[in-house]
Amino acid sequence: MTRGRRAFRSLFTCLASAAAIAGAVHAAEAQDRPLKIIAVLGPLGDPFFSAMEKGAKDAAKASNVEFEYTAPNGFDNLAQDLARLIDVGAARRPDAMVIGNFIPDAENEGIRAAVAAGIKVVIVNTGSGNWSELGAVSYVGEDATATGRKAAELHLANGAKSGLCVNHVPGNPGTESRCSGFKAGMEAGGGRAKVLSLPYSSQGNPQQIVQAIAGELMSDRSVDALYTLGSGIAANALQAVEDNDAAARVKVGTSDFSRQTLEALRDGKLAFDLDQQPYLQAYYGVQIAAQYLKYGMHPIGVVTTGPLTITKDNVGEALKPGVSPYRGAM
C-alpha cells in the first residue's frame, strides 16, 4: 500500500515535471513559432517538378521551417491555376513564398499583392526578367534565352548548319525564349534555325510526336541539328532520327533530364543535355527565404543554376544510383 502510494506519487511528480517541460517548450514555440513557407510551382506529374519538390523539402528540413508544395494538376489551365494558387497561398499568411513565374501576365499581380502584404517572395525557375521590379528577394534559375544560345553553340561546334527547335508547349514564355535564343545563336554562328510547334492534339502521345518530328525532317532535309526542350521529347526525337536512318546527319541535343536521356548520352546517341538543376532551384529558393526571414541575409542579384552542360564525358556522375533522383532522373 505504502509502496503503491509512493510509486503513485513519484509517477505524479514525473508527469508534473514532464508537463512543466512541455509547457516551457510550448511557450518558447509561441514566441518563436516555426516559419512557414508555401511554394507555388509546377505539376508533380512532371518528373522535373518532382525533383524540385524534393529539393524544396530537403531545404525546409535542413532550415527547420514548415513547408508546403502547391501546384496545378496539369498544364492545360496553367495561367488561371497559378494565379489562383498564389492568391490562396498568400491568403494563408505564410512568412515567405517560393514561386515559379511561368506566366508573368497571370502571376505578376498576385506576386505584387503578396509582397505588399509583407510576405517575402523568392522567384525560381522562370521570371529572370522582372523579379526585382516585383519586389522579390532574389531569383534562382536559368536564363532561358542563354540556354537556347548555349544549345546553338554546342551544335555549331559539332559542325551543324541548320537547326530545328521543337517546342512542345507553344506559348509558354520559357520554351519560347529557349527557342528564340537557339535561333539567334544559330544565326549568329552563320547557320539558320526554325521552330517546330507541336499541336495540343499530340500532347501525351509519344507516337504522334515521333511521327511529327520524322515528317518535319523528311520535308526539310537540310536540318542537321535538333534541339528539344524536355526529356520525353528528346527520346521521341532520337527515335524519329533513327527511323529516318538519319542518325549520321542529324544530331539531337536537349534541355532537361530523364534516365533515358542520360543513357542516350552515355551511349553516344544524344549530343548534349542542358541541365537547369531543378533540385537546386527549389533548394536554394527555400533556403534563401528561410535565411532572409531568420537572419536578414540574402544573395545580391540572381543565383544562376543553368545551363549545366552534360555530355558523354560527365554523364557518369549523374547516372550514379544515389545521385540520379536529385538530378530529376530515376
Binding site: P170, V195, L196, S197, L198, P199, Y200, S201, S202, Q208, Q211, A212, I213, A214, G215, E216, M218, S219, D220
Partner: peptide, 19 residues
C-alpha cells in the same frame, strides 16, 4: 492529317487550324 501536316513543311503554328 496529324502526321501529314508535318510532311508539308508549312509553318507548324497553323497545324491545329488545318487539323
Amino acid at each position: 492529317v496529324n502526321v501529314g501536316i508535318f510532311y508539308t513543311g508549312w509553318n507548324s503554328d497553323w497545324a491545329q487550324l488545318l487539323l
